[in-house]
Design a protein around this nucleic acid. Structure first.
Lengths: 220, 220
DNA sequence: GATAGTTTCATACAAGTGTTTGAATTGCAA
DNA sequence: TTGCAATTCAAACACTTGTATGAAACTATC
């Protein structure tokens, strides 16, 4: 193991560069230059470029997932195995939003990297994301316990919409700021979390009527 | 101008290949092979690879935007300059959802291309997307007229969330199907539209002026 | 301090990229 | 037909990419 100084220097440089300039136009040569390290070091320590990216993404996303599950577990234990839907949704979208939004100048490199990973979609990351389904299933289960009257379909749609609002807000935060001429304050993370949770909760609890209406609206 | 057969053959081949395999690993050589055309033809007819991609994306997205505005204008005229919020939202997300979802085997190449463009994000497309803000402002205006009591901030957040649900559902349709084990039927486009519009409407009207239960929206 | 195992380094490699070139071919008008 | 522009073509260009190599420089153990 000696000194893995080189190893972590590469990781840090790669994270910073990918965060700033995206996966598209950052080459191994850029990374090793930034890290003051030899070109061959990447392949020596990580095997390949893709494995470097994967390691970067995995370590960040398991941290987020762990935080999500920690909040979920705490909420369900406190509620005797059944947590309020708002709290579940907050555990789902809170960690991601808190990690990726907030005042830009105090936004961590890790956070900016994860934003990149959510905007661009590069093969090694896509492969990892596909394994996230099991993780989401745990939330679907908690939501089902919280809203036993709701159909599975509605639960899944609610979960989908909650993630949609969180991720899209992160991805397009710049555009929303520009569109609203700064009126939507994306640095106020807790307000964003509250808005997302509120809408998702309403979507899951309002309109008791059976959702799947037989009346079909014909398009075009 | 003679025969622009070559030109359109390239466009068709590029659209098909990009739709199927993504921008990442489709080269000019792949495209010209698919189009049975010489390699130099792309640069001759389009100037560069990026301009080819841009032309492809522009033509598709102005078609969508035109359809959106057509629906919006019709709705506002019918309501005397003020359309119901549900109808506005439907005009916003309907065309995109209808264009990108639906039974896969009968999904047009154009639709599949637009899905790709929404998943991967390649420089020439990103540049064009940034010009979409003016287009969205028109919808923000219509929404403000429809809900004069609502603050601008709320309007923009509602707009953001509506787009979020539509785009995320398109981007992650495969994952949602897998997660729900097929229970969420993404081929039933009108149901998806209704769900998105319903949630977005609730988000925009909840806790304020009551506009009846916005459960089921029927348009046209 | 010799030895064996890591780690670093300069360099080369092979493959692929978009683009350019200049000659051939085509199509059409005079 | 002839002439001329538009188009097509094969080939090469210039460059970048990730990866591999084998020697050199370390490091720790005996």
């Amino acid at each position: 193991m000696a000194s893995d100084h080189t190893r972590s220097a590469i990781l840090a440089a790669a994270e910073r560069l990918y965060a700033d300039r995206g996966f598209g136009d950052v080459t191994l040569r850029d990374i090793v230059a930034e890290a003051n390290v030899n070109l061959a070091a990447v392949n020596y320590h990580f095997g390949s470029k893709d494995e470097l990216i994967a390691e970067l993404f995995v370590s960040r996303s398991i941290a987020t997932n762990r935080e999500r599950l920690r909040e979920l577990k705490a909420a369900e234990e406190q509620g005797g195995g059944r947590a309020p839907i708002e709290v579940i949704l907050r555990a789902l979208v809170g960690p991601t939003l808190r990690g990726c939004l907030g005042p830009e100048n105090q936004r961590s490199t890790a956070a900016r990297f994860m934003i990149r990973a959510s905007i661009e979609s590069v093969p090694p990351i896509r492969r990892i994301k596909n394994r996230e389904i099991d993780h989401l299933r745990k939330f679907a289960g908690a939501m089902r316990r919280s809203l036993p009257d709701r159909s599975d379909v509605d639960i899944y749609w609610g979960l989908n919409f909650a993630l949609a609002m969180a991720h899209h807000t992160i991805r397009e935060s710049e555009r929303l700021t520009k569109l609203s001429e700064g009126k939507c304050d994306l640095d106020d993370v807790e307000d964003v979390v509250a808005r997302v949770v509120s809408v998702a909760t309403t979507a899951l609890t309002a309109g008791r009527t059976e959702t799947k209406a037989p009346s079909r609206v014909v398009a075009r």
